[in-house]
């Protein structure tokens, strides 16, 4: 699993770490049972504050993406996310709304955007349950 961040980006660092790990799972480059680097290892690798990594792991644990085993470290559950249905829908809506707004400003027609989204989904090879096919 490759985790990359950009400290100068407008997104908070802990969110970038969360996103990087979630997308690694979505793309299938990390699978269930996989062990995450320790807080210290990842903090050093990314040269960021260990508190930020702790916070990212807490969010991932809350979302059901990872489990923490006392003394052994953090492991991927393989599940996308356990967020309650409504919250998941809200987050999805928010994500797509942002993408749609940007696309509009770039001057694309709705059909172009739909096609582009379809292409992204194909690249990730999701099936109907949000799992990798």
């Amino acid at each position: 699993m490759i985790i990359r961040i950009d400290p100068a980006s407008p997104d908070p660092l802990f969110e970038q770490v969360v996103f990087a790990i979630k997308s690694a799972v979505a793309k299938g480059s990390a699978s269930a049972g996989g062990k995450l680097p320790s807080v210290r290892e990842l903090a050093r690798e990314l040269a960021i504050n260990p508190n930020t990594v702790v916070r990212a792991y807490e969010v991932l644990e809350r979302d059901g993406v990872i489990v923490r085993r006392q003394g052994a470290g953090c492991f991927l559950t393989g599940r996308g996310s356990d967020l309650a249905g409504a919250e998941r829908k809200r987050q999805l809506h928010e994500l797509l709304r942002r993408a749609a707004t940007e696309s509009f400003h770039l001057g694309f027609a709705p059909e172009d955007v739909e096609r582009a989204l379809k292409k992204c989904l194909d690249e990730l090879q999701f099936d109907s349950k949000g799992k990798k096919a």
């Binding site: 210290r40 903090a43 050093r44 040269a47």
Partner: peptide, 14 residues
């Protein structure tokens, strides 16, 4: 500078 940061990160982690 990066090595300096590493020492600081280790201290924080420990």
């Amino acid at each position: 500078r990066r090595e300096f940061l590493d020492v600081m990160i280790d201290l924080l982690a420990d």
